[in-house]
Computed example of a mutant assay.
Amino acid sequence: MSATKDHTLAAAALIFTYAMIIGFTDNYVKVIAAEAGLWQFHFTRTAMAMVLLAGLAAVLGLRLRPVNLRAVLARSSIHGLAMVIYFGALAFLPVALVAAGLFTAPIFVLLISRFAYGHAIGPVRIVAVAVGFIGVILVLGPEAMSGASLAALLPVIAGAMYAMGNIATREWCPEESAETLLAGFFLALGVIGAVGMAVLALWPIAVPLGSDGFLQRGAVWASGAFYFWTFVQAAGSLLGVGMMIRAYQITEASRASVLEYIILPASAFWSYLIWGETLTPLAVFGMALIVAAGAMIALRAKVQEA
């Protein structure tokens, strides 16, 4: 068991802020997807984020050099591959099914924490994971549980890899700064974006118009709107993902992963404010379950830390 002290309430505050930031910025991915591709987006966002991070490091004296380069590379690669599988599955599976697969991550976090690292997992955390996942399914709708096939295992594999990356934050990289892990995360996605653009340049494929071609589209001459919203994404992700990484550093992954469920209600909140999108009563009930799951973890931590 890790000797690092838990600060679950502080982690909850960080993850809530992360969810509100990412929920806002991700609502504008549809604007980016209308004219550019996923791979160009990742590459451009990484370039912008690294310039911002380098500037912050120079001004604030942040440490970007890894203490354990192998561990940081391994964690960054796992998270990067999880995102590639996740976005790749979006090309041929319903969004709800893919999202539901990714949100199996807290279940894998519990299993890996218990059986690979010997962490004690109490009944409150087990119930919180179950309640939160039921809430996710209700938010995503009945289609999230339909279309079961071999291909539908891909989002679940992404969820498992995302869980491994989150556990690696605390177990493999305890001496790394949050900014070091943040740089590793963005660089991994930037390399993947560059590879994707190169592959599509060498072997171009037919690209549907608008956001339907997000995954298949290679590098294009993009407008100022693309660069503006990609910069907003870079700045928001830099801050938000940095907070998420720090949260996983200061509390057990099995607690932090349940708290991450809050990103669905946060995204829905911004979707309503920005685009006027509304939810069904069943989805609202699902969000209530998600909030309840996070509250169970936070309140349990408050009792233990009192």
Rank of each mutant, 00 (worst) to 15 (best):
I22C: 10
A219W: 13
L97H: 06
L215M: 13
R70M: 09
M197P: 04
R170E: 01
A71I: 09
V195M: 08
F92S: 12
G213F: 03
L189K: 12
I112R: 03
G190A: 13
A158Q: 10
R217L: 03
S271Q: 14
L238P: 00
L56W: 10
R125Q: 13
M83A: 11
H79E: 13
R45Y: 02
S76C: 11
A253Y: 01
A298Q: 09
Y117H: 14
I137E: 08
V156T: 04
R255W: 02
K302Q: 12
R75A: 13
V51R: 07
L239F: 09
C173W: 00
M145W: 07
L239R: 11
A188G: 12
G242K: 05
A163W: 02
S271R: 12
A288K: 14
A148M: 15
I205Q: 14
P106W: 02
I134W: 14
G276M: 05
L64F: 06
A144C: 09
G276N: 08
I32K: 10
F103Y: 15
L64K: 12
A11C: 11
A116W: 13
A158F: 06
L150M: 14
V31L: 12
R65K: 15
I107G: 11
A82N: 12
L110H: 06
V220H: 07
F185C: 06
V232H: 02
F214R: 07
H119S: 13
I263D: 00
V191Q: 04
A12P: 00
P208H: 10
A120P: 01
A34Y: 08
V291T: 12
A10C: 04
L187G: 03
S257L: 05
V31I: 15
G132M: 02
S254D: 04
I137D: 06
L264N: 04
V136E: 02
G218N: 08
H7D: 08
A99N: 14
V291K: 11
A178D: 02
R65V: 12
A158C: 11
I262G: 00
S223H: 15
A163P: 06
A19Y: 00
V31R: 13
